[in-house]
């Protein structure tokens, strides 16, 4: 890494070719309409940005921007409402799924999603999560699992891996004293109120494509009125893992994914 070449822009000026490919008819990937122009406050390399973009892309593709209401959590994504160009409600810590329930119950024809981190969804909000799923609310729950409390500065989350160092487990998570990392997605996949449950990641282009498909399913299934769609996105936290973004995605692949394996935990039409 130390030998990385740091080049100057002037080196590339002569690379400009005569016939530019960068014209609208050749555009194959652009920021979705449903993302606002506001620069995100997330740390460099944070998976939240990709997760946000995928949700926005799906909302664009389904053409449901005017019918979508999002619920932001407490955590790093507390400002999620600054980035989604849809109506949004900011929820108290852990209560996003209850807030989403309230919205969906009075506006059953709207698409409602909550966006929650691991501390929000799997610690302080476990009760709301389980019961929202058990009631089979027709909402999409996006669960961002990076194994740590990001906003408060890197404390242990319910999903922190065994042995993983955080500011509150400075010698690594000792499961005898601090309990085991919680696979809440496996837990809620058991509930009859959950119609679709999937675990994805956004650390590689392939995973990003699959994650988008899962989010797409999550929104689409709301039309069926069959229950909760739950999509866990295993993601990184370079700042609090104390790694570069590239290292963090590698670490995620090597440590997080073996414990939190990717794939559909519950797929309609397929018994798992």
């Amino acid at each position: 890494m130390n030998e990385r070449r740091m080049l100057d822009d002037s080196h590339y000026e002569n690379l400009i070719e005569e016939e530019s490919v960068c014209i609208n008819e050749n555009l194959v990937y652009d920021k979705p309409e449903t993302l606002t122009k506001t620069p995100m406050h997330y740390c460099p390399g944070c998976g939240h940005g990709v997760a946000h973009r995928l949700i926005a892309e799906v909302i664009d593709e389904l053409g449901i921007q005017e019918k979508t209401i999002g619920v932001a959590p407490v955590g790093c994504a507390v400002f999620a409402y600054n980035y989604f160009n849809v109506d949004m409600s900011e929820a108290a810590h852990g209560r996003a799924s209850a807030v989403a329930t309230g919205i969906k119950r009075v506006l059953p024809d709207r698409y409602v999603f909550s966006y929650q981190g691991d501390g929000d969804l799997a610690a302080i909000g476990t009760g709301e999560t389980i019961h929202t799923c058990n009631r089979g609310e027709n909402i999409l729950i996006i669960f961002i699992n990076n194994g740590i409390y990001g906003m408060t500065g890197g404390q242990m989350a319910p999903t922190t891996l065994e042995g993983m160092k955080t500011t509150t487990t400075p010698f690594g998570r000792d499961v005898q004293a601090m309990g085991y990392p919680l696979k809440i997605t496996e837990l809620i996949a058991q509930l009859p109120g959950v119609y679709y449950c999937s675990r994805v990641a956004v650390n590689t282009p392939v995973h990003v494509r699959k994650a988008k498909k899962a989010i797409y399913n999550g929104f689409k299934f709301q039309e069926l009125n069959k229950g909760v769609s739950f999509v866990e996105i295993v993601t990184n936290c370079p700042s609090n893992w104390k790694m570069t973004p590239v290292e963090s995605n590698k670490w995620l692949e090597e440590h997080m994914l073996p414990f939190y394996p990717l794939g559909d935990l519950k797929l309609p039409g397929k018994e798992n």
Binding site: N26, L27, Y29, D30, P39, Y42, G47, V50, R53
Partner: peptide, 8 residues
């Protein structure tokens, strides 16, 4: 993460 790249 920041949607800064447009691809053609």
């Amino acid at each position: 993460p920041d949607s800064v790249i447009r691809v053609f």
